[in-house]
C-alpha cells in the first residue's frame, strides 16, 4: 500500500517538475519573441525609409551595378594584395611578441605578483579584444600617420587578446612535473621556461597563432578604409569613384587571398599538430 502511494507521489512530483520546466521554457521563448519583435519594430519598421530604397526593382538595379566586372583593374590589384598579405603576417608576428609578456602576467601560476600584475594582464587581454580593429586603426593612424605601419600595429594590438588568453590558459594547464624535474637537477629560471614550459604549450600556441593569422588576413583587408594601405584603400577608392565593377574585383581578390590563407593554414596546422 505504502509502496504504491510513494510511487504515485513520485509520479506526481515528476509531472509537477515537468510542468514547471515547460512553463519556464515557454516563458523564455515568450520573452525572446517579444524582445525580437521590439528589435524588428525599432530597426526595420521605424528606421527604414522604404520609399528611398525603391522596391524590388530598385534593389535589383543597385545590385546589378556590381555584376559588370572591371577586368582592367587586375594589374592594379596585385600590389595591394601582396601588401595586405604582408601586413597580416607582420602584424601577427608583432602581436605574438606583444602577447608574450601579457600571457606571462596573466597566467595565474607564473605571474610575478598575483594581486597587482595578474589583474593588469587580464585587463590588457580584455582591452585588446573589446576594441574593434577599425577603432585601433583610427587611434594608430592619428598617432603615426598614414601608411602600412598603423595597420600593422592595429592588427598586432587586436591579436594580443586572443593569443595571450589562450597562451595563459595553456601555461596554467601545464604538467608541473617536468618543471620540478628541471629545477631539481639545477636548472635556472630560463632553462625552466625553455625546457619545462615551452615544449608543453608550444603546439597549442602555434595552432592559435596560425588561426589568428588566418583571421588577420581579413582584418588587414579593411585597414585601408581608415587610411592604412592595402586592398582596403583600393576598395575605398573604387567605391568613392562609383566604379562598382572595380569594387567587385577587389572583393574577388580578397576572397582569393582568404582561400589561399585557409589552404596554407590548413597544411601548417597539420604540420604542427
Amino acid at each position: 500500500m505504502s509502496a504504491t502511494d510513494s510511487l504515485a507521489g513520485s509520479l506526481n512530483l515528476q509531472t509537477g517538475l515537468r510542468r514547471k520546466r515547460q512553463l519556464r521554457l515557454a516563458l523564455i521563448w515568450g520573452l525572446f519573441i517579444l524582445f525580437t519583435a521590439w528589435c524588428v519594430n525599432g530597426t526595420i519598421i521605424e528606421d527604414t525609409d522604404w520609399s528611398r530604397i525603391g522596391g524590388r526593382s530598385g534593389v535589383l538595379a543597385s545590385f546589378g551595378r556590381y555584376i559588370q566586372l572591371d577586368l582592367g583593374l587586375v594589374s592594379e590589384l596585385i600590389l595591394p594584395t601582396i601588401e595586405t598579405f604582408m601586413m597580416a603576417c607582420v602584424g601577427t608576428v608583432l602581436g605574438c611578441f606583444f602577447s608574450l609578456p601579457v600571457a606571462w602576467l596573466g597566467a595565474a601560476n607564473v605571474t610575478p605578483s598575483r594581486h597587482i600584475l595578474y589583474p593588469v594582464g587580464r585587463f590588457l587581454m580584455v582591452l585588446s579584444r573589446s576594441v574593434h580593429e577599425i577603432v585601433w586603426a583610427l587611434i594608430f593612424v592619428s598617432a603615426v600617420g598614414l601608411g602600412a605601419l598603423p595597420g600593422i600595429l592595429a592588427i598586432a594590438m587586436r591579436s594580443v587578446g586572443f593569443i595571450s588568453k589562450i597562451t595563459a590558459e595553456a601555461i596554467e594547464n601545464i604538467d608541473a612535473k617536468p618543471v620540478e624535474a628541471i629545477r631539481a637537477v639545477g636548472g635556472n629560471q630560463f632553462q625552466v621556461m625553455y625546457y619545462g614550459i615551452l615544449p608543453q604549450i608550444y603546439p597549442v600556441v602555434l595552432a592559435t597563432v596560425i588561426f589568428e593569422w588566418d583571421i588577420n588576413i581579413r582584418r588587414s583587408a579593411v585597414m585601408g578604409l581608415v587610411g592604412a594601405g592595402g586592398l582596403g584603400l583600393l576598395f575605398f577608392r573604387q567605391m568613392n569613384s562609383f566604379n562598382y565593377g572595380g569594387v567587385t574585383m577587389v572583393i574577388l581578390a580578397i576572397l582569393l587571398l582568404i582561400v589561399l590563407g585557409e589552404v596554407i593554414s590548413h597544411y601548417l596546422r597539420k604540420a604542427v599538430i
Binding site: 525609409d49 530604397i53 543597385s62 577599425i134 581579413r218 582584418r219 579593411v222 567605391m239 562598382y244 580578397i254
Partner: peptide, 19 residues
C-alpha cells in the same frame, strides 16, 4: 572571408543608410 565593414558598405550602397 568578407569583413563586416565591407558587408556594411555594400549593403549601404544597395539599401541606403540606416539600420
Amino acid at each position: 572571408a568578407i569583413h563586416e565593414t565591407i558587408w556594411t558598405i555594400l549593403f549601404v550602397s544597395i539599401l541606403g543608410f540606416g539600420m
